[in-house]
Design a protein around this nucleic acid. Sequence first.
DNA 1: TTGTATGCGTTATCAG
DNA 2: CTGATAACGCATACAA
Lengths: 347, 347
Amino acid sequence: MRSRHAGEPGHHLARRRPSGRVTLEEVAEHAQVSTMTVSRALRDPSLVSPGARERVQAAVAQLGYIPNRAARTLASARSKLIGVLAPSLSNAVFVETIAAVQECVDPAGYQLLIGNTDYSPVRQAELLSAYLSHAPDGFLVAGIDNSNAVRRQLAASNVPLVHMFDLVPGDEWSVGFSQRSAGFAIGEHLIERGARRPAFMAAQLDPRTMQRRAGFRRALRAAGRDATLEVLTQEPSSAALGCRLLRELLETAPACDAVFCCNDDLALGVLFECQRLGIAVPRQFAVVGFNDLPFAAVASPSITTVATPRYQVGFEAARMLLQIIHGEVPAQNRIDLGFELIVREST
Amino acid sequence: MRSRHAGEPGHHLARRRPSGRVTLEEVAEHAQVSTMTVSRALRDPSLVSPGARERVQAAVAQLGYIPNRAARTLASARSKLIGVLAPSLSNAVFVETIAAVQECVDPAGYQLLIGNTDYSPVRQAELLSAYLSHAPDGFLVAGIDNSNAVRRQLAASNVPLVHMFDLVPGDEWSVGFSQRSAGFAIGEHLIERGARRPAFMAAQLDPRTMQRRAGFRRALRAAGRDATLEVLTQEPSSAALGCRLLRELLETAPACDAVFCCNDDLALGVLFECQRLGIAVPRQFAVVGFNDLPFAAVASPSITTVATPRYQVGFEAARMLLQIIHGEVPAQNRIDLGFELIVREST
DNA sequence: TTGTATGCGTTATCAG
DNA sequence: CTGATAACGCATACAA
């Protein structure tokens, strides 16, 4: 505990509040104006005469005044908080997306409440209601479940929401790209490179992964190939898992000559395991990843993958949300940002 | 805009508030008790008679009541918010640490305000004052600068703060481990393995990195070796950077036969580049990383590295902070969690 | 165990 | 352009 002593800002001006913080009222006293004038000078200096403005600014600086957001939220019914829900934070993709969100909303003075749903609908609902008590001005969510409870709560709260990654139908707002098309493009690419028995490898098995799978299989079937070769697991994704799944794949399907890993981490593991097993990539076995994480370009061999617009997804979704919050109407319900197949040495 | 219509929860009970949200007062009317009874029933059901408790719970469920944190914060002077500052979120280390913090504080009902300082003292100060307006109950920071402005603001605010990773001297609170000792251990290890001319490779050059460097150099000098071989850059770390720095290193010091990379990402790049250049690891060139990220164990060859207690750092720091917030006094100012050298194939 | 009065720090509203 | 007044929704302190 600090002891209060002379010299401490504001000590001679007003009775100390229980909170110990400098308040608008103290600033007002010091600047010889009313609290409303201080309030206005702070939010929009143009609303106040130059003289008052200066005195207020001086008082704020001298007293070290910091606005109390709780009071502001209560009085104005706007919290300047945005709730962000992502299925995972260990996945670099979502971290980058959230970083983009931060950058977009920061200039407008919004703070983020970031929640990790761990791919669990239950956790999702919990977080949502926990966040609702903070009265966020909006939500940005990646991969929300269509659970009725969640939908109802959201609708009742009247808080605007923008989906990230999932392009949702109807009149909801969303920014993302087609996972299905990306999967299809990869399937086509492998066929083109002469793969005879390509497999699909995936962990976590969230909806987006399954959409990639659907596109991939469609491409194989379109080329008249067997689309049933796959190793799937609910476990969280990692390079280590990629190693293990490759071994499993080759045991059950020794003739397999290519694999689409649902993300780059798995692909990295596959690459290492191939090296250990003496399998030449891409000559004997082709490998494709997903997301184009930084290491994909410099791996040896470098990894063919799909570059996803994860930064843009976050930024555009945030921008869309801010528009809605400010009462504007975005031009479109859905923004499809596309993707890019990056062909490298591994195929 | 939705139109209000019959069937909407609570519509028949009370005049609608401007916010449109159900309030404690409405719950109270519905449950036939006073607002205080509802307030108590919500925070600690044992404070209220079973009958009242049930009626309140029923009313809450039926009306879909969600407490208003802003009001609660204003009235109780506790926000249940914790500010977390990390220098980077693209670094998996901090992401894991933050996840640990989340898990620790979640049961106690705290939410996190997560900020990325980007290794910038200016950004740090900005975030800090932005967060102060939310009146957080505490701060958890990784790598805060000792800037006077920041320190003063913090002291004046009276918000408790626990340092993560940095073990700070004096009476401040901190949880971490000795970066210096870790660097020393790595230096010793390389010498032991017969390295004649080991180098240090680092990016970002934050204080923690420089402490590892200091320990590393001390070990080399203690063994009578040249401790001046190094490639340093301010750029952010990545595998791609590891590739480039290895080439630079070998150009300027062809005789170099080992390198301590200040993190695993750099080490991964070095490994790939060695492969491309036909350099045998560890026979011709030994590689050590730092942090023991998941891929280190499964790389080919697997990477010798230092396992850092990043999860524990977050968890213990959060626990310490909660203690302080609740008025308890932690047993010690500093908790040193240590580290572990993991020797693998790359040395 | 329950209720009443009051205040938390700010902004909306409206009058001057 | 400025100020008085009344909320905002809840919890503290005290009384019953």
